[in-house]
Amino acid sequence: MRLHNKVAVITGAGSGIGEAIAHRFAAEGAYVVGASISGRAEKVAAEIGGSAIGIKADVGDEDDVRRLITTAEDAFGRIDILVNNAGFGGGLMPLHEQTTENWDRVHDVNLKGVFFCMKYGVLSMRRTGGGSIVNISSATSLVGFKHHSVYGAAKAGVNQMTRAAALDYADDRIRVNAVCPGTIWTGLVPMSQESPEPPPGVDRVPGIPIDRWGLSDEIASAALFLASDEASYITGAALPVDGGYSIGYSGMGAENPGRSID
Score class of each variant (00 low, 15 high):
H4L: 13
E194G: 15
L215T: 00
D242N: 13
T71D: 10
A153H: 02
H23C: 03
A156D: 02
G12M: 03
A26K: 11
A165S: 15
K155Y: 05
T183F: 15
F88A: 05
V241Q: 09
S51D: 15
A26D: 08
N85M: 05
F88S: 06
S38A: 10
G129C: 09
G236R: 00
L92R: 10
N177F: 04
F145S: 13
R105K: 05
R66P: 07
A46P: 10
R66G: 14
L226W: 04
Q98E: 04
G129Y: 03
G207F: 09
G121K: 08
V33D: 13
L224M: 08
A75N: 03
A45M: 00
P190A: 01
G214D: 07
T235Y: 09
G50Y: 11
A238E: 09
A170P: 12
L167H: 06
S228A: 04
G54E: 02
A223E: 00
E47P: 02
I17L: 11
G251S: 10
D203S: 12
D108W: 06
S124K: 13
W185D: 08
F116Y: 04
A22R: 00
G236S: 10
S232A: 13
C117L: 08
K112D: 10
L92Q: 13
N159P: 04
G77E: 06
Y233L: 02
T162Q: 10
G49F: 04
H4A: 12
A231Q: 01
L68F: 04
E73V: 14
E42N: 10
G201M: 12
K146N: 14
V158R: 04
